[in-house]
Structures are given as structure tokens and as C-alpha cells.
Simulated assay, not measured.
Amino acid sequence: MAARDPERRDPVTAHPQPDFPDQQQAHPGWTGPMDPPPDHGESSYVGHGALQDRAAVVTGGDSGIGRAVALAYAREGADVLFTHLPEEAADARETTRLVEEAGRKAVAVSCDIREEEQCRALIGRAVEEFGRIDILVNNAAYQMSQPDGIGAISTEQFDRVMKTNLYGMFWLSKMALPHIPRGGCIINTTSVQAYKPSPHLLDYATSKGAIVTFTQGLARMVAEDGVRVNAVAPGPVWTPLIPATMPDTKEFGKQAPLGRPAQPVEMSPAYVFLASDRARFITAEILNATGGTPLP
């Protein structure tokens, strides 16, 4: 019997392929102007109760991978508190709508995870709303392409990359762990850049390599407490961060063996799996979702 919807099953043609219209936005970028529009699973993701009645915290949940994860978690039965920057309030409202449409509680919190006290307040808010944190997804990130090399990376940019990508993850993990019960988990977002750094993203790639080490080290530290720590390493993904930080979006993702960038919906199943009981014996692992680029 012929497979149903063969075009949808074909990983090369299932989603838009470059060349894309060239497009730039001011940072942090927004979903609405993107062409083609990102797919977060709005019409395709179907939940199966894998995370029923769990409480999740997702950073950077207003758009991109974070929105796709929030949507998937809600359709799997979880309540979701997610962060966004003040400029991303409109995108955050759409994530809230999607979570609530799935019948789950949505809590949108404006939070700059570069600030320790804002991280502390965020964890306090999550405990106030849910009483515990079953899943912490450290997903928010910052990058800025610098094709002119290391000399063009300012100390301000380097600090912003490290504070967002590393300090925020460190603070939130440290603060959340006392509220994560046995059977809970932390999931970090690293990147193909951790293993195959692009020269124009040197500082970003450095931070993503550190996330791999942090994930594996923390996993061993908290294993006896019954808490798992894993990470997802995406390849190129079509999110607002791309037109907001890349000088040329026309061929974005073409370098992947599958010839295109992933859509956010193609990342969310990895985060669902790692948060679910199906992954209860998996910790200190990096789940690669690179579109065919081999990683260690």
C-alpha cells in the first residue's frame, strides 16, 4: 500500500527550501514578518498525553523553538510558564493563546535571563503558579553574526552572548533544582555550532560548546537525586533569531545535507521525548537534530 502524503514524509520537501527572500529585522526579531512563516506545529502537532499534568518552564517561549516546545508540551498535557523579552510581548500573546487553546495553563513572564535577580523571580513565580517544576527547558539564546572576525566581536557582545546563553542557564538550573522532584528533568538547547563552529559565530559557538559540558557534568551531579539532564543540538532552524542576527538569509539552511533549515515543529518532538517517561534511563546525552550533519 502506498504511503499517505509522500510529500509530507519526504524530509527534503516537507518544508520550504532555500532560496528564501532576503530579509532582516532588528533584534530580537518577530515571527510575523518572516517569509516563509515558521511552522511551530499549530496545525500538525498531535499530543498523546506524554506529559500529563506536569509543570514546565521554557525560556524564550515566545517564538521559534521555544514556542514549538510550549505548544507541544501543552498538547501533551503540561502547564507551561515561559519567558520573553519586553519587545516580544506580541509573540508571547500568541504562544499563550496556543497553550490555552490546548486546555492548559499558560503563564507568560517578561524576563531578561542575563539578570540573576530576574532569574530568581522567575523561579519563584513558577513555584507560586505550579508548586513545583517538573521540566526546565533552558532555550533562550543570543547570537550576532560577525563576518569580519574576532576583531569585530566587542566585549559588550561577548558579555551578552555568555550572560544569555550560559549565566542564565546556570542560574535557572541552580535555582530550579530544589523545586524539581524526583522524575523531573532539565533540557538545555545547545547547537551543531558546539561541534562545527562557523567562524562568523565564534562567541555563540563557544557558548554552545560550554552547554554540552555543563549538561553532561550536571547530569552526573544530580543523577542520584532522580533528576535527568539532557540537551538538544539543533542544526539550522528557521526562527526570528535568523533575520535578526544574520546579514544574509537567502540561502540559510542550504548547507544542511537535507538542503533546508528545520522548522521549529521539527525540534519539539526531541524535547517531548527527553521530558517523557520514555526517556527515564537517558541522562547526560545530547540529542542531535541537525538535518544530517554528523556530530560526535
Results as ranks from 00 to 15, higher is better:
residue 1 M to R: 11
residue 1 M to T: 14
residue 1 M to G: 15
residue 1 M to N: 15
residue 13 T to G: 05
residue 15 H to P: 00
residue 15 H to W: 07
residue 24 Q to V: 09
residue 30 W to T: 09
residue 33 P to E: 06
residue 33 P to V: 15
residue 34 M to H: 01
residue 35 D to I: 06
residue 37 P to H: 12
residue 39 D to S: 09
residue 39 D to Y: 01
residue 44 S to L: 04
residue 48 H to T: 10
residue 51 L to E: 02
residue 53 D to H: 08
residue 54 R to Q: 15
residue 59 T to K: 04
residue 59 T to N: 01
residue 61 G to H: 07
residue 63 S to Y: 08
residue 67 R to K: 14
residue 70 A to R: 01
residue 75 R to D: 12
residue 77 G to L: 00
residue 89 A to G: 01
residue 89 A to F: 03
residue 93 R to N: 12
residue 93 R to P: 00
residue 94 E to D: 10
residue 97 R to E: 13
residue 105 K to G: 00
residue 109 V to E: 11
residue 109 V to P: 00
residue 110 S to D: 12
residue 110 S to H: 03
residue 110 S to R: 06
residue 111 C to G: 01
residue 114 R to V: 04
residue 118 Q to E: 15
residue 130 F to R: 00
residue 132 R to N: 07
residue 132 R to A: 15
residue 134 D to V: 10
residue 134 D to M: 01
residue 135 I to M: 13
residue 143 Q to F: 14
residue 145 S to Q: 11
residue 150 I to S: 11
residue 157 Q to M: 15
residue 161 V to C: 13
residue 162 M to Q: 13
residue 163 K to V: 04
residue 165 N to P: 03
residue 166 L to C: 10
residue 166 L to V: 12
residue 167 Y to P: 00
residue 170 F to N: 01
residue 171 W to S: 14
residue 171 W to Q: 13
residue 182 R to E: 15
residue 185 C to F: 02
residue 186 I to N: 01
residue 189 T to H: 05
residue 190 T to N: 03
residue 190 T to K: 03
residue 192 V to F: 03
residue 196 K to H: 12
residue 197 P to Q: 10
residue 198 S to D: 12
residue 199 P to E: 12
residue 199 P to D: 13
residue 202 L to G: 11
residue 207 S to K: 04
residue 209 G to E: 07
residue 210 A to E: 02
residue 213 T to C: 08
residue 216 Q to H: 08
residue 218 L to K: 00
residue 219 A to K: 04
residue 225 D to E: 14
residue 227 V to A: 07
residue 233 A to I: 02
residue 233 A to M: 02
residue 237 V to M: 09
residue 238 W to F: 08
residue 241 L to Y: 05
residue 242 I to M: 13
residue 256 A to V: 10
residue 256 A to F: 14
residue 257 P to V: 06
residue 263 Q to C: 05
residue 264 P to H: 13
residue 269 P to T: 08
residue 269 P to Y: 01
residue 271 Y to A: 06
residue 272 V to Q: 12
residue 272 V to N: 13
residue 278 R to S: 15
residue 278 R to L: 15
residue 281 F to A: 15
residue 283 T to D: 09
residue 286 I to G: 01
residue 290 T to W: 02
residue 290 T to E: 06
residue 291 G to L: 07
residue 292 G to D: 09
residue 293 T to H: 05
residue 296 P to T: 05
